[in-house]
Computed example of a mutant assay.
Amino acid sequence: MTTAAQDPRSTDDLKQALVESLMAVIGAPDDEPTAETAAATLRTLDERLAAEAGSR
């Protein structure tokens, strides 16, 4: 699993990836790999935002 610190995408790119992942879940609500991808993206973005908030 890639952590927020290891993910090379910018925070804005992660936000866009989350939107795209959630749209994919809406389009395929029973697809478990799609849901897992969305969950992983959400965790990564959450970690990134928490780290950014902590550094202020």
Rank of each mutant, 00 (worst) to 15 (best):
P33A: 01
E47W: 11
Q6C: 08
V19R: 02
A50I: 00
E32D: 10
L49N: 09
P33T: 03
P29T: 06
E47V: 09
M1H: 04
T44R: 01
M1A: 15
D31L: 01
P8H: 00
D12K: 15
E20H: 12
T11D: 07
S55R: 13
L14K: 00
R48G: 05
Q6G: 14
A51F: 08
E52H: 01
A5R: 13
A39R: 02
A4L: 05
V25K: 00
E52M: 08
L18I: 05
G54L: 15
T41F: 02
V25C: 00
A24R: 04
P8I: 03
T37I: 13
L22F: 02
P29Q: 01
D12Q: 10
A53E: 12
S10Q: 08
M1R: 14
T37P: 14
G27R: 06
G27D: 07
E47S: 14
D12G: 11
T41C: 01
V19Y: 04
T11I: 10
D46Q: 12
G27V: 05
T2Y: 11
D30T: 08
L49S: 04
T34L: 01
P33G: 02
D7T: 01
D30R: 12
D46F: 13
L22E: 01
A53C: 10
R56Q: 15
D12A: 08
T41V: 00
D13K: 13
D31C: 10
S55A: 14
S21E: 10
R9C: 03
L42A: 15
P8A: 07
A5D: 14
D46S: 15
D7C: 06
R9V: 08
D12S: 06
R43F: 14
L42R: 11
R48K: 12
A40K: 10
Q16T: 03
A38H: 11
G27F: 04
G54V: 07
R48N: 13
A4G: 01
D31S: 08
G54H: 15
I26V: 07
D31V: 11
V19K: 09
G27N: 15
T3S: 12
D31Q: 07
S10H: 02
